[in-house]
């Protein structure tokens, strides 16, 4: 087995657009769950809406900035539609409504009735909406190597996308860091602990939960845009498993920490690519086919999630002491 090649693959994937997209989505989910205690089971829905918002508006002729705004706007509207009716209800209703709503978005997106706009289940090919983003790149069209990683400068899975993506992640982390340490973040943490107590102190809990839902959803949408800029918009590629992976990433890194989601995403994709590559190299192809190796990878993800909760519920960066206190 070629370990050098394997490690290069791991490095490429860890720093790649998928890891960036999931990091952004997990940062959003962290605002929902880690900070406010909202159980959003439909983060993939926010990502998908962001992706559709960006791609459809670009295809319709919108400039890059407007396409980004449309993506963000779609997430804001989605969050309001979900939050306005459900955030007054018991917490588990939000979980059911968000997971249902994300599925509705996916089913409607892939429906034959909307083939004209969303491309139905075949989706929208990358080339139909990537041009404005790639044209905005100051880099020359070329292939550059950095260490062992060689990538195109502008096309699809490119240096340009990585630069923009990691800048977004950095900004998002700074933003969350500032908010967590502000009185606003304090109110959210109070809501996570006991929303009735916070209400009794004169805070409009409903409004804060709505703000958190919208804000986290916007990061989800940005993640969705990065996700599809590397490939294509396809409803089924942003389904329920994506939400579940995002949860795994958040819990792996550590909920309620600023850098947890980013670290979680890096490790998640690094480990997944490593395991797959290792199995492919170590097990002959006639014993396990390529698809089967991939499936084993996903089985391991599920088991990791279970083991995490059992053995290290605070994640890598979380504070064990904080978690040990049973919120009464």
């Amino acid at each position: 087995m070629d370990f050098g090649q394997l490690l290069t693959n791991v490095l490429t994937e860890m720093t790649g657009p998928t890891a960036i997209a999931y990091a952004l989505a997990a940062i959003g989910l962290n605002i929902h769950f880690g900070l406010t205690g909202l159980i959003n089971m439909g983060q993939a829905g926010f990502m998908l809406l962001g992706a559709y918002g960006f791609a459809v508006s670009t295809i319709a002729g919108a400039p890059l900035w407007l396409a980004f705004l449309v993506a963000i706007g779609a997430a804001v509207v989605f969050a309001l539609i979900l939050g306005l009716p459900t955030l007054k209800l018991r917490g588990d209703y939000l979980a059911i409504v968000t997971i249902a709503a994300a599925e509705i978005v996916r089913m409607v997106g892939r429906s034959t009735a909307l083939t004209e706009i969303t491309g139905g289940s075949e989706g929208l090919t990358g080339n139909s909406f990537k041009s404005t983003f790639q044209d905005a790149s100051p880099l020359p069209d070329d292939r550059w190597a950095l260490g062992p990683v060689t990538l195109a400068t502008n096309a699809s899975n490119s240096w340009w996308l990585r630069i923009v993506g990691w800048t977004l992640v950095l900004l998002a982390c700074l933003f969350v860091w500032r908010l967590v340490r502000s009185p606003w973040g304090r109110v959210l943490r109070g809501i996570r602990e006991d929303e009735d107590a916070v209400r009794a102190l004169g805070k409009n809990v409903y409004s804060y939960k709505l703000q958190a839902l919208v804000l986290g959803g916007v990061f989800g949408a940005l993640g969705g845009v990065v996700f599809v800029l590397a490939s294509s918009v396809q409803a089924d590629s942003l389904g329920r498993p994506v939400t579940f992976n995002t949860w795994t990433i958040l819990l792996l890194g550590g909920a309620a920490t600023v850098l947890g989601p980013v670290l979680g995403s890096l490790l998640f994709w690094g480990a997944l690519v490593f395991v797959r590559g290792f199995l492919r190299g170590a097990v002959p192809a006639d014993v396990l086919s390529v698809q089967q190796v991939e499936q084993i990878g996903w089985v391991l993800v599920g088991i990791t999630l279970i083991l995490l909760i059992v053995f290290r519920p605070q994640g890598i960066l979380g504070d064990k002491k904080e978690l040990a206190i049973n919120a009464r």
Partner: peptide, 16 residues
């Protein structure tokens, strides 16, 4: 969340 992990593992296992 543990049940989510189970669902993820179970789904992939069935596919496998």
């Amino acid at each position: 969340i543990v049940t989510i992990g189970l669902a993820l593992a179970g789904l992939s296992l069935f596919l496998f």
